[in-house]
């Protein structure tokens, strides 16, 4: 049995519309008008046991709505889904014992209390023995490197530290499946890498399946074997990450800031200059045609570099390329 089976899932939200100003408010009061938004359209996919599946797309693509239906918080407008054999919106509580969730933008740790208090509370909520809870906390403390953070009130932690505790807390009850909704949002490079490493370790050591939503292609490259890309509530691409990388994630962007003013011609064959200023430059190039180290050495010859960022193109661009390929 696949841990996730989704068939023709559909979710329509009714949104109240109101014209601007007092007249619009009054009109809306007397005769409210609603418009329908299709957040998820006819979605079907499966996830295998122990799989690390990326579920990505730009903002508003329907990723979070799908996760909320898969955890049973939202009822679908139509369609069917089975998560670990349960219909989530009918058996939400039974399912909750088996899954873990992290909603990157919403804290689940008690804000004014040390994270340890929430860990102990979760032990009770998931009906673990006190000894088992303690053993589990010790293990997660080591896996997520949060030993020094557990006794500090959550409000005093940095975002990266808090997220490590948030993700660790979601593993407390040994879930068979973890649903991560934007776990790396707002984190710096080091914090992102820490979270990714810990998730990978839990997947390898405990075989927990992970469905990960993100609008960061980096999460996908670092963690997932297979990817589903959604846009406007529909699947636009489904394949191995290696294939996606080969076909669509070939571009890299490099942004460099110099210690002093530079006056160098940054033109290199096969490299597109996106932005150039007195103290820096932003370039884009295809890694299949131009080697990263040749670009870096060209840039470093221009002056003393104080900051450098290498990033993937935004997902919107990847999706545009997928559409272009499909239309060819």
């Amino acid at each position: 049995m696949n841990p996730i089976e989704v068939n023709n899932l559909h979710k329509i939200f009714q949104t109240k519309r109101k014209a601007a100003g007092l007249a619009g408010s009054m009109r809306s009061l007397i005769k409210p008008e609603y418009s329908s938004t299709e957040a998820v359209r006819d979605l079907s996919f499966q996830m295998e046991a122990g799989e690390l599946l990326g579920f990505i797309g730009p903002n508003g693509a329907g990723k979070s709505t799908t996760i909320k239906m898969l955890t049973g918080i939202l009822h679908p407008s139509s369609g069917d889904a089975k998560v670990l054999g349960f219909t989530p919106w009918k058996e939400r509580q039974k399912l909750a014992y088996q899954i873990g969730t992290v909603f990157g933008q919403r804290p689940q740790l008690w804000y004014h209390l040390p994270a340890m208090d929430t860990f102990i509370l979760f032990g009770k909520i998931y009906e673990l023995d006190d000894r088992e809870t303690k053993k589990r906390i010790d293990y997660l403390t080591e896996a997520f490197e949060i030993k020094d953070l557990l006794d500090v009130p959550v409000r005093k932690l940095s975002l990266g530290q808090r997220m490590r505790c948030e993700v660790a807390a979601s593993f407390l009850h040994r879930p068979k499946l973890l649903l991560l909704d934007e776990p790396s949002i707002g984190l710096d490079v080091v914090a992102k890498q820490n979270i990714r490493d810990a998730i990978k370790r839990m997947n390898q050591e405990e075989g927990v399946g992970v469905l990960l939503t993100s609008h960061d292609a980096g999460d996908l490259e670092a963690l997932c074997k297979r990817v589903i890309i959604v846009n406007h509530g529909q699947i636009v691409y489904e394949d191995k990450v290696s294939n996606l990388k080969r076909k669509f994630l070939t571009n890299k962007m490099v942004e460099v800031r110099y210690a002093q003013e530079v006056a160098k011609d940054f033109s290199i064959a096969g490299v597109e200059i996106l932005k150039v200023g007195h103290y820096g430059v932003k370039l884009k190039f295809d890694t299949a045609k131009t080697q990263v180290d040749s670009v870096i050495s060209h840039l470093s010859s221009a002056g003393d570099i104080v900051d450098i960022t290498i990033s993937d193109p935004p997902l919107e661009e990847v999706i545009a390329r997928i559409y272009q390929e499909a239309n060819k």
């Binding site: 955890t71 939400r92 909750a96 014992y97 899954i99 933008q105 919403r106 689940q108 909520i125």
Partner: peptide
Amino acid sequence: KDGSIAYILNKPYD
């Protein structure tokens, strides 16, 4: 309004 209901609802309690 702020969406935190998602966490409160998805735990195994009434």
